[in-house]
Amino acid sequence: MGIHCEIYLHKPPNGAFVGVRGNVVSGVIRYVVNVPTTITEITASIKGEGIMKVEYLLRRDDQKQPETEIRTETYIDVNTISQSGLTVLQVGAYDLPFRVIIPHDIPPTSKYVKYGNIHNVTCKISYHVRIRFSRPGLMTFAKQFTKEIIIIAALVPRLPTSPAIYNGHKKLTQLFSSKQSHINIKANVPNSVLRCGDKIELNYEVINDTNVVIKSVEVKVVEVYTFNPLSGREVVITENVPGTETKTVAIQKGGTQEMSVEITMPADRESLDHSKIVSREYFVLLIVNLPMPHRNYVQKIPIQIGNNIHDSVVQFDNHLISQPPSYWDAMHEDWGDTKDYQHKTK
């Protein structure tokens, strides 16, 4: 089939589409026919899906190969039939406008790969525009073209945007002492919902009502990925966010430490919600470092990060389909889903 495709997207100023209610992906698909071609249907689509693969490296005795789980999830699957019925496309260029509303509860475009000693994890969330030309005949396969698009999610606050207080308490057991020994922690966060690259503000107080010297108080931010295979064997991967660590001096017996901390988050860190297979969360850890044999105490404070906070995001309505495009991008020929095709053919 002598068909070639290009696409023009009416992109927002930053080049990515924001998944908030009322926003749209729109543009024009131009297809060029080199030889007269018979088709039964032309379909323009917007599709988005996530795919996660977890390979468990610790094998049971009865397993010869590492166990692998794959889970997929569909976020958007909208088809618009622009032409239906047996038609002969003559030689020439054709323009096909399209416009699809973006769901407000979809995750952003993302990719994650992690190889470890216990498991290997790969996860990808992607979105693309597709045009499909169906041809007559039982043994004739459709020809389709795709172009990937970038989606950034709207951040729906589920944490306080006003000051929140977190209290912690640890009781120490001390041999040969009848006195009750306690460490009390109080942390105040003015705002738990932040934009990418903003500063995290934290005010805390640690009261050391024990006979033990607290070695230091450490504050840092961690990134937590949680993957959810269908088997229910949740995989959690926690990593420190570079450049967010601070550490204070010791707190003497019976002493108190009050501190205000500001942590600048890297601009490329963003929470990931609205997916059943994966989440990406951020936590401020307030760690009270204790001498042996006592275990450290960790106060965990959740935060949300994103550039498009739902209550204040400015929607970009891409309605100017009739405007002449300024440039065109090539669409790539795609062989379709394995559920649709058993083998490749031209």
Rank of each mutant, 00 (worst) to 15 (best):
H4P: 05
I7W: 06
K11N: 04
K11T: 04
P12Y: 00
P13R: 07
A16N: 00
V18Q: 04
V20M: 03
N23D: 02
V24P: 11
V25P: 05
V25N: 03
S26Y: 00
R30N: 02
V32Y: 05
T37A: 06
T38I: 15
I39W: 00
I39M: 09
T43M: 14
A44G: 14
A44I: 15
S45I: 03
I46W: 03
K47P: 08
E49F: 00
G50N: 00
K53D: 04
V54C: 14
E55N: 05
Y56V: 00
L58N: 15
R60T: 10
R60F: 05
R60Q: 15
K64D: 15
K64W: 13
P66K: 00
E67N: 15
T68Q: 08
T72E: 12
T72I: 12
T72P: 07
E73W: 01
Y75N: 04
I76N: 08
N79E: 08
N79D: 08
T80K: 14
T80I: 07
S82P: 13
S82Y: 05
S84L: 10
L86P: 09
V88D: 15
L89D: 15
Y94M: 05
P97Y: 09
I101K: 01
I102K: 01
P107L: 03
Y112H: 08
H119Y: 13
H119T: 10
I125A: 00
I125E: 06
V129N: 00
V129Y: 01
L138T: 12
L138A: 11
T140C: 00
F141G: 15
K143A: 05
K143C: 02
F145C: 09
I151Y: 02
I151D: 02
A153Y: 07
A153G: 08
A154W: 03
A154Q: 10
L155H: 01
S162H: 09
G168T: 04
H169Y: 04
S177M: 06
S177F: 05
S181L: 12
H182G: 12
I183M: 01
N184D: 11
I185H: 05
I185F: 00
N188D: 13
S192M: 09
S192I: 03
C196D: 07
D198L: 10
E201C: 09
E201F: 00
E201Q: 10
V206P: 13
I207F: 05
D209Q: 13
D209E: 13
V213L: 11
V217K: 10
K220E: 08
V222S: 01
T226R: 04
F227N: 14
P229T: 04
L230Y: 12
L230N: 11
E234F: 13
V235M: 02
V241C: 12
P242H: 02
P242W: 05
G243P: 08
G243W: 09
G243D: 07
K247R: 06
V249P: 06
T256W: 09
Q257H: 13
S260G: 05
E262Y: 08
A267T: 07
D268E: 08
D273H: 02
S275R: 06
K276E: 10
V278F: 10
R280T: 06
L285F: 02
L285H: 02
P293M: 11
H294N: 09
R295D: 10
R295C: 14
N296L: 15
Q299L: 14
I305F: 13
H310A: 04
V314C: 09
N318Y: 00
H319T: 06
S322K: 04
P324W: 01
P325R: 09
S326C: 11
D340I: 14
Q342K: 12
